[in-house]
């Protein structure tokens, strides 16, 4: 049994410790918000947080998560269901199209803003370049990150 902490809840799973976090979360814990995109950490669709840091869950074995806090897209809203600032900004800027990559985008953006509350364009590029959006909503992602950062002037100029 592997003991996990997922979105603040203690969970136990009986899996091969080499199983990537992605599949444990999706199949064993039945939380399907985290997405499979490439399997080689090249697209970011599977991004989750380990102790607040973004990792590509498709390429990170579950054994690495022992003793750490896993946070998924299902766990970033407030306890009362209020969406996080980043999620709200995502709706405001109407970011998602197909929406498949957006869990990963939001997890990367959330981690970025926790580290750099007011990121520059370069910092946004660096933090978000690992997340592919095939619908091409990069302009709106940038706008939403700036809006979530409280930098509404920059967000407006962007939009």
């Amino acid at each position: 049994m592997i003991k996990l902490n997922v979105n603040g809840q203690a969970r136990e799973v009986d899996v091969d410790p080499a199983t990537p976090i992605l599949w444990v979360v999706r199949e064993n814990l039945e939380m399907t918000g985290t997405k499979f995109g490439c399997g080689i950490a090249m697209c970011g669709a599977c991004t989750v947080h380990l102790d607040g840091k973004p990792v590509r869950s498709c390429s990170t074995p579950i054994s690495r998560a022992e003793g750490k806090a896993i946070t998924t897209i299902e766990g970033i809203a407030e306890d009362d269901g209020t969406l996080s600032k980043v999620q709200q900004a995502w709706i405001e800027a109407q970011v998602p199209q197909c929406g498949y990559c957006q869990s990963g985008q939001i997890m990367s953006a959330t981690a970025l803003l926790q580290k750099d509350p007011n990121p520059s364009d370069e910092q946004i590029d660096a933090a978000m370049a690992g997340n592919v959006c095939r619908c091409g909503m990069y302009g709106r992602i940038r706008t939403a990150i700036k809006s979530a950062a409280g930098n509404t002037q920059a967000a407006k100029e962007e939009a």
Partner: peptide, 18 residues
């Protein structure tokens, strides 16, 4: 130890070797 922390934006976005 933490590729994304060391070089944000690297393609080597694996979880790191703890």
């Amino acid at each position: 130890a933490d590729p994304l922390e060391k070089i944000p934006g690297t393609k080597m976005a694996s979880g790191g070797v703890t």
